[in-house]
Design a protein around this nucleic acid. Structure first.
Lengths: 170, 170
DNA sequence: TATTGTTATACTCTATAACTATA
DNA sequence: TATAGTTATAGAGTATAACAATA
């Protein structure tokens, strides 16, 4: 029973998180919605990559990735060059203009967080970051585990090996 | 510089949280999408209320609330009775069928969390819950603060007075 | 035959604005 | 005149399925 209640409270916070997400979205540049911002940010962090890898990092279907990528390509923020190793694939690369856009995004999001979380300690920000990373990992693990061994399921490839802190992954 | 990096990592987790949200959404009943589920859950938790109060708790525009409410009303999960005190308003109340639906939702969401978070300690679940609640409060506070004093901005009325733990709200 | 990527279609959530009824 | 709520419209994100090109 206590377990049930505990999860229900967590679920309520999941639902309420949408308000935070929307608030963050409001400060984005007009022609760079959250989908585009995610593409640019991941390319800046992980470097050049193929569509399929980006879809994996975004954890969305490749059709969705394709649309986001088309949007940022139209604005000159990325280039799509053919992959010499596999002519079906395209290599995505951030352009100088794209890098500028990434800096702008970083500036805006950092600014709003610094404002909203002004009374949070460094440790608290770190705790939330770590727990949310672990939450995603917990969901990813289950997904890959149920995809059937051998299949190319989505891996939590973005996770920079964050310590599991209190517990070992069993 | 370290502050910038810290926030950027948190933002990345915000973005990645969408995958968790979508995964949770997949296990909902076909005719009860997340918007409807949120309405039912809030009514079960807080009791009868008016549209405006529900919009406040959902932290979305009342036009959005109106649509969600219409959806659950069409399915017989809630009743809308006129407010004797103000004929413009309607009082929303969960029906027995609505309560059954809430139980079903609770069952499904609790089950998936118990599965995915099987290796989380009670303390870790509590920490994440508390930090996400505080995150929302931090964003809500700023919003009400900038709405201009006296205006009816959205209050964090859902927050069950969770302890601010490490720090006092200043 | 399987995989990479694109496109068409459809659904959900959201906000803005116009509108009705009541305060 | 201001507020509670509804509805119309538009924009963003996502998934499924059909399709093209290549492996």
């Amino acid at each position: 029973m206590g377990e049930q209640t505990r999860y229900e409270e967590l679920i309520r916070q999941f639902s309420a998180f949408g308000a935070v997400k929307r608030e963050m979205g409001r400060i984005l540049p007009g022609d760079c919605p959250s989908g585009s911002a995610a593409v640019l940010t991941l390319l800046a962090r992980h470097g050049d990559m193929r569509m399929s890898r980006l879809a994996e990092l975004l954890a969305v279907d490749m059709s969705v990735t394709s649309r986001h990528v088309a949007h940022v390509a139209e604005r000159g923020w990325i280039e799509r060059s053919p992959d010499p190793a596999d002519k079906r694939s395209r290599i995505l690369r951030l352009t100088p203009a794209g890098l500028t856009q990434v800096d702008e995004l970083s500036l805006r999001t950092t600014r709003i967080l610094a404002e909203r979380l002004s009374d949070w300690s460094d440790d608290e920000v770190g705790q939330l970051t770590r727990l949310m990373a672990r939450l995603r990992a917990s969901f990813d693990d289950c997904r890959t585990a149920s995809v059937a061994p051998g299949t190319t399921g989505n891996r939590p490839a973005d996770l920079p090996v964050l310590e599991q802190t209190t517990r070992t992954p069993a």
